[in-house]
Amino acid sequence: MRQIHWLGLGEAFPNPLYTPDPDPSVPGLIAVSEKIYPGQLAAAYQLGIFPWYSDNQPVLWWSPDPRMILKPHNFKCSDSLKKTIRHFCNEPSSQVQVDADFGAVVRACATSKRKNQDGTWITHEIMDAYTQLHDQGHAHSIAILEQNQLVGGLYCVSFGGMVFGESMFSRQTNASKLALAALVAWCGQHQVAMIDCQQETAHLSSLGATPISRQEFLEQLQTSLNQTNIEICWDFEKDILKHWL
C-alpha cells in the first residue's frame, strides 16, 4: 500500500489521471494537508480534486471514482418544478441574483440542516478559501429571493469551460432546484459540457446526473479547461428559467 501524500506549503498535488489511489481502503482520497494553503484550492480544481473534511480533521483532498456529473441536456425538470418555475417567473417580487452576496449563500449552505447529516463540511476555513476564489472570479453564487428574502441558492466553481457544483440549500420547497435549473440553463447556453457533482446521490440521480469513470471525467476536464473562458459571462436573471417551460 502506498503512502497518502501529505502536502506542505508549495507542494504540488499528485495528478489523479496518472496516480492510482494511494490507499485502496479510502478510495478517492488523493492527498492530505494541514491547511488550505494560498493557491492550493485553484490548483486542486484544475486537476479534478476537491476538499471535503470536517472540523478537527486535516484537509482531505478527493478525486473519487466514479465521478458524478450532470450534462445540461440531461437535466430532469419535473412537472412540479416546471409549475414552480412558472409561478416564480410570474411573481414580480421573485428574483435570481448572481454573485450579489456570495458570503450569504455560502453561510446559508453551511448552516442548513440536512437529512442524515450531523454538522457540515463547510468550515470557516472552507468559507474563507472559496471567498478568495470568488474574489478572483472563479467561484459564483446563485441566490433565489422572494420578497427580498433569501430562500434558496447554490455556489459553484468555474475554470475555463468547466463548472463544479459545490453546495445547495433550500428554505422553501424547490428553492435550491430553481437555482440549479437556472445554472444548468446558463451552462447549456455557454456550451458547458458537464457540471461536476462530485459524489453520487439519489437526489442528484433524480435530477439527471450520472456517474462516469474518473479517467473519463479527468480527460473531459482537461478538454473543458482548454476550450473557453466563461468567468466573464456570469450575469443572468430569472428569465433564464423559461428555458425549461
Rank of each mutant, 00 (worst) to 15 (best):
G152K: 12
G103W: 11
I212D: 00
T123R: 03
I122V: 08
N148L: 10
A143T: 13
H5W: 02
P66A: 03
T223R: 11
L60K: 10
L241V: 05
C233A: 09
D55T: 13
N174K: 01
P58T: 05
A42K: 05
N148W: 12
H243V: 12
S112E: 15
M168S: 06
A31P: 14
L204T: 00
S170G: 11
L245R: 08
G28S: 09
C197V: 02
V192W: 01
L154V: 13
L29W: 10
Q97S: 04
N15C: 12
W234N: 02
E34V: 01
Q199G: 01
W234F: 13
S54E: 14
Q198R: 07
D21L: 11
K242L: 11
D23I: 04
L218H: 05
F13H: 01
A31W: 06
S33K: 01
S205E: 14
G48C: 08
G103C: 13
Q215W: 06
D99M: 00
L183R: 01
T131H: 04
E231G: 09
A209L: 04
S25N: 10
A209N: 02
W62T: 03
W244M: 01
D135T: 06
V163K: 00
N229D: 15
A179H: 09
E237H: 14
E11F: 01
A42P: 02
H140I: 04
P27D: 06
H87Y: 09
Q198S: 03
Y37E: 02
V96R: 07
A31K: 02
A181S: 12
N226Y: 07
V96A: 07
G28E: 11
N116L: 05
C109N: 01
H190W: 05
V105E: 06
Q40S: 07
E146G: 10
D239R: 08
Q95W: 12
E146K: 15
M194N: 06
V98E: 01
P16V: 06
R86D: 00
V184P: 00
I85D: 00
Q3K: 14
D196Y: 03
E219I: 13
K82W: 05
V157I: 15
L218T: 12
Q198F: 02
L41Q: 03
M194K: 07
E125V: 04
I85V: 10
Q191I: 02
N148T: 13
Q227R: 14
Q46H: 10
G152L: 14
Q172D: 09
T131A: 08
L9N: 14
L245S: 09
T111Q: 14
R214E: 03
P51V: 00
Q172L: 13
T19G: 03
S93C: 14
D128F: 11
A139Q: 04
D128G: 06
G39V: 03
K83S: 11
Q46T: 15
G137D: 03
Y155W: 09
Q40K: 01
G161M: 08
L150G: 14
S93Y: 13
Y37I: 01
G39S: 05
E91C: 15
Q46W: 10
M127E: 12
E200C: 04
M162V: 15
Q199P: 05
K115M: 11
M1N: 11
S63P: 05
L41D: 00
M68S: 07
K242T: 14
P58I: 04
A182L: 09
F236K: 08
L41Y: 03
A202H: 08
I195A: 09
A100Y: 11
F236P: 11
K115Y: 12
S224A: 14
I36D: 00
N90L: 05
